[in-house]
């Protein structure tokens, strides 16, 4: 849903602050597109409505898009929400429309850190938002960001404590990332420090795991039974279809992505065309390599054959053997790229 009140200056997503007038037409285009795709789809096991800010638009037409899809019994349906948008009414509407889970963009529980990130919601908005979601029976994920300007280790601890106090089902903790083309990229004085982020990552890992949240991907922790199924699909080379502008899909071995603006997306759909901007199909070897690179990031790790013995020796302490798999250690998670660049195609057998 590519519409925001305000653009956070670290954000590189396809989203706009001046196109709210397009929202109705855009949502209708999404609905028409979903209806067109539905006959070719197997029952859908998960849906993820991301942003932009999906919690800003009228829930009725948003849920109408969902209604077009052949959603399977017991599917996971997540909507990203800003804390200030999520009240009891919206939460109830979501639940009634088939939504099972909300992912709330909390980022920090420290006011000056939120400020530095360019987030405009008050810290106090988070508790009521979580309560609203709980009241409607929704699963709750909290998104956190560490490494903003002026954030101390103690600030980060405050944020972790604040999140745990609300007893979410799932926590995602992301290091602030400098994306090219953003205002943040243009201001090196605010770029995060790798060592500081490394410390904070380990803090997150310590606190979340001690509180019963199991690590299952670089930046994701969940209570038992609450891992995000949709994300697991991404990391296990599963199939998913794209809906909406700038969305990505993966089907039958092809990765494809949609046109970037909501207007062009609506134009294409209204004209009866597929709004695809580009696609790629990898050779089988490259595909297997991509599969292990993705899997490396998760608790599942990679087959032992994916890492040559010489590299295994060079990476002592970063990976450990678990059965016939190699899995990142805690320190190894932080250096996952160093490990990933050494992975090789494990071959057909794996």
């Amino acid at each position: 849903m590519p519409f925001c009140r305000h653009r956070c200056d670290y954000c590189a997503f396809a989203t706009w602050t001046d196109r709210d007038h397009v929202a109705a037409r855009y949502l209708e285009a999404c609905r028409v597109h979903a209806a067109r795709l539905a006959p070719g789809l197997a029952p859908v096991t998960s849906v993820f409505v991301g942003g932009g800010t999906p919690s800003r638009v009228d829930p009725t037409p948003l849920l109408a898009v969902l209604a077009e899809l052949p959603v399977a019994e017991g599917a996971e349906v997540t909507v990203e929400c800003n804390p200030e948008d999520l009240d009891a009414g919206r939460a109830a509407a979501f639940a009634a429309g088939g939504v099972t889970r909300v992912s709330i963009g909390v980022q920090s529980f420290v006011a000056h850190v939120l400020d530095a990130l360019g987030r405009r919601h008050p810290v106090e908005a988070v508790g009521p938002a979580v309560a609203a979601a709980r009241g409607a029976g929704l699963d709750v994920n909290l998104d956190l960001i560490y490494g903003g300007t002026g954030e101390s280790r103690a600030d980060w601890a405050t944020t972790l404590d604040g999140a745990l106090a609300l007893e979410p089902d799932h926590v995602s903790a992301y290091g602030l990332t400098v994306e090219p083309g953003t205002p943040l990229a243009d201001d090196p004085s605010r770029h995060p420090d790798d060592d500081d982020q490394a410390d904070k990552y380990l803090d997150a890992s310590d606190r979340l795991e001690a509180a019963g949240y199991g690590w299952y991907e670089i930046s994701n922790w969940a209570r038992p039974g609450h891992r995000c199924r949709h994300n697991l699909l991404y990391w296990s080379m599963g199939d998913y279809v794209a809906l909406g502008c700038a969305a990505h899909g993966h089907r039958d071995g092809v990765r494809y992505w949609h046109v970037r603006t909501p207007e062009r997306y609506a134009d294409e759909v209204e004209a009866g065309r597929e709004p695809v901007a580009g696609s790629e199909r990898l050779e089988p070897g490259a595909r297997r390599l991509e599969a292990v690179q993705l899997s490396l990031r998760t608790e599942a790790g990679v087959p032992v054959a994916a890492l040559p013995p010489a590299d295994r020796a060079a990476l002592v302490g970063l990976v450990e053997v678990r059965g016939d798999r190699l899995v990142l250690t805690r320190g190894g998670r932080l250096l996952a790229n160093e490990v990933a660049t050494r992975l090789v195609d494990p071959g057909e057998a794996a």
Binding site: Y174, G175, T177, D194, D195, Q197, A198, Y201, I218, S219, N231, Y234, W235, Y240, A242, A246, A247, H248, G249, H250, R255, W257, E290, L294, R297, R333, L334, L335, A336, N337, E338
Partner: peptide
């Protein structure tokens, strides 16, 4: 100490 990309979802792959 750190080189990992924090996020890797559908659009990042």
């Amino acid at each position: 100490r750190k080189d990992v990309l924090s996020k890797c979802y559908g659009g990042d792959i």
